[in-house]
């Protein structure tokens, strides 16, 4: 199965029963997989929507009705979905959104890229909100984090984005699929809309004309985000114990960086890898632990430098941070990154 298929199968197993999407490369395998998978389920809905806007708003409707719902796209399409993501966030509605990132801005290209990090981790749409963002790096993580994304979305009543890229989506790699969840046995959603039968009618909305009321809504969201930040920071540390330099990278870039770490280790350079898995909240706490022993950091991204800001913020000036980026859909190699590591530190 390609990475996109893995996400689709994991979503079905997570109890996702509503998917709406619109064709865009390089994520079409996911849309196609959902079409086939939903058709086999009695309670499943697949809609090829007329636009990304329609797709995300269909997901909003399905979510308001209490259903685990997902949409997916690639960078330009995710820009269109931002309206809906802002509304979902404001309405405390769960949803899972997959961004299979490609080169940008504009139409860009269809090669793997990490240029949407800011958009994903800063909220992306209008207003004062954040979304949980997970950055898988293996097929196994695509499966596991997709399951987790649905759990987080329901638990915190918030949209969760899986931020992968064209390479993760297209790549095939073995993965063990998690056990399926029966959607009927998921925790009840007492806030959902299903008709005011024997209970007072409910409203799900985001309009609060009174500024004092809207301020309270904003603080409610902020408190939720504080809780999330406290509870779900995730990262992988690789060969960091005796490391003198740490490469910080996520997703596809982290795989390339891992190869580079292994290469330079063979030559005696004590390098390690810090791989954020939760991109928002950024795993500041775990990075600070690593920082107690290591001062030199090299951030590698397939962009001109976005996550590097979070690294710098997390380290609060207590580390030397270098950056190396390959934007535009260029996939660099472990050899190239190894050379970058050695460029400064040479042989140890």
């Amino acid at each position: 199965m390609s990475g996109n298929h893995v996400i689709g199968e994991a979503a079905i197993r997570a109890g996702c029963r509503f998917y709406a999407g619109y064709p865009i490369t390089p994520q079409n395998e996911l849309t196609e997989y959902m079409a086939g998978a939903m058709a086999k389920l009695k309670d499943g809905t697949f809609i090829q929507a007329e636009s990304e806007l329609a797709a995300i708003n269909m997901v909003l409707g399905a979510s308001a009705a209490g259903c685990r719902a997902m949409t997916s796209s690639s960078s330009p399409g995710i820009s269109l979905k931002q309206e809906g993501i802002s509304f979902l966030s404001a309405m405390d509605l769960p949803a899972v959104i997959v961004n299979c990132m490609r080169g940008g801005p504009g139409l860009g290209n269809i090669s793997p890229s990490q240029g949407d990090y800011f958009q994903a981790t800063r909220g992306g749409g209008h207003g004062d909100y954040r979304n949980i963002v997970l950055g898988p790096a293996t097929a196994q993580e695509l499966a596991d984090l997709t399951m987790l994304a649905f759990d987080y979305a329901d638990k915190y009543r918030t949209p969760v984005m899986i931020l992968q890229d064209g390479m993760m989506g297209q790549m095939m790699e073995p993965a063990v699929m998690p056990d399926p969840v029966d959607p009927k046995r998921l925790p009840p959603k007492p806030w959902k809309l299903d008709g005011a039968d024997g209970r007072p009618s409910r409203i799900i909305k985001s309009l609060y004309l009174d500024p004092a009321e809207e301020e309270q809504i904003n603080w409610n969201l902020a408190h939720k985000y504080e809780k999330i930040t406290d509870e779900i920071q995730r990262a992988e540390t690789y060969r960091t114990d005796d490391a003198q330099i740490i490469i910080v990278a996520y997703g596809t870039a982290a795989r390339i960086a891992k190869g580079a770490v292994n290469r330079v280790r063979e030559k005696g350079v004590k390098a390690g890898l810090f791989r954020p898995i939760s991109l928002w909240p950024f795993p500041t706490r775990i990075l600070k632990e690593v920082n107690k022993k290591v001062k030199d950091f090299l951030v590698f991204e397939m962009s001109t430098g976005q996550m590097v800001e979070d690294v710098r913020l997390s380290l609060e000036g207590k580390g030397n941070v270098r950056f190396y980026g390959r934007p535009g859909g260029v996939v660099s190699t472990p050899i190239e990154i190894a050379e970058v590591i050695e460029g400064k530190f040479g042989r140890v």
Partner: peptide, 20 residues
């Protein structure tokens, strides 16, 4: 029961509700 929609998106939101 009522759920707000973004400007113009009511048909899409209604589609999601009805299918579920």
């Amino acid at each position: 029961d009522m759920v707000e929609a973004a400007h113009g998106r009511a048909a899409a939101v209604a589609t999601g509700l009805k299918r579920v």
